[in-house]
Design a protein around this nucleic acid. Structure first.
Lengths: 176, 176
DNA sequence: TATATCTTGGATATTTTTTATCTTCAATAG
DNA sequence: CTATTGAAGATAAAAAATATCCAAGATATA
């Protein structure tokens, strides 16, 4: 029962990227530096997030990463699933069929009750993650964090942000 | 986001042990054979369950494992926590303090909002697991499973059960 | 004392996670 | 229009965690 460390970094990255001006991007190296994590590892998570549509990656000297849609429409579940993969945490290996008294496979049409119960509980977890939107997390952060930390974040963004792709601005006309 | 493989075996073991007559025990070797898993590895999970009080281990030639309390009072959460440990799946490494612009530690008294949101979702998962009682899972199993599989399970228990410890019978006067 | 069981610790193998290195791509300068 | 540069993307290697197995010790029964 362990979430990979990358999930924490991924969420923090998304939260930071939400502060970018529309269309601008931030390179992976800057994200890694800001969070004090290995850049080569972070890139893997960023790519998965991009593949899932949570982020958009822009190649080239002006490139980097930015959010794929508004922070209001990104849930923590989107991020967790992108990084960890869609498979449920509980994987039923059908050990009920490995018994010495196992029947023919047809006798196990109905799903294993243990699997059903475990997956049902997991749905509750996913539902709760789905309800947590990135925008809300950021709002809470801005309300509670030390003003100096906030200011540093803004300055950092100003310093490292890249123009991104000009065409992208018109394609993502939903700020915040 | 992955539950260790032992969780599935642990739940199946607990479900099988619930079918024992009060006071009787089943050796680890029988549990491993019934589920087609490695005995030496299963023992580690059984011992964790015993340490948590979910199971009781009885040494000696008449020994083996049995439930530590009635199946009604054992939740899937009890089993999952016993096997996986009590730590939450999301472990906040406080990477917000690893930023190049980090402040003194005192500035981070308030908990990280991301951590709070993730732990809140995890509480929903645990709550759902807590609501799933072993007795309910077994009832569902008995209602849906193939009668032949049920019969084999009973016969297997009859064949392999051990007398257990005589003193234990009076100590656990809550059947089912 | 002999046996059947749990208990404990370590050795080994497999998988997953993390880090490092190299290749490809697109924008700009000359 | 080619070369350079700063970035993403892909591949390979190192480290860590997990799963499995094996063997010697402890405990209780007969």
């Amino acid at each position: 029962m362990k979430l990979s460390e990358g999930v924490e970094a991924a969420i923090h990255c998304a939260a930071l990227l939400a502060g970018l001006a529309p269309g601008k991007t931030l390179p992976a190296a800057a994200l890694a530096e800001y969070h004090g994590v290995s850049a080569s590892y972070l890139v893997k998570h960023l790519n998965r997030l991009a593949a899932a549509g949570v982020l958009v990656s822009v190649p080239g000297p002006h490139g980097g990463y930015r959010l794929g849609r508004s922070a209001k429409r990104i849930s923590l579940l989107d991020i967790v699933l992108a990084v960890e993969g869609p498979e449920p945490a509980f994987r039923c290996a059908e050990i009920r069929q490995r018994s010495p008294g196992a029947l023919e496979p047809d006798a196990y049409q109905k799903p294993c009750g243990i699997k059903v119960a475990m997956l049902k509980a997991e749905q509750a977890w996913r539902q709760a993650l789905r309800a947590e939107r990135l925008a809300d997390v950021i709002a809470g952060y801005e309300a509670e964090a030390d003003p100096r930390a906030l200011a540093f974040g803004c300055a950092f963004l100003q310093r490292h942000q890249r123009p991104g792709d000009a065409a992208a601005m018109s394609a993502s006309p939903d700020p915040q």
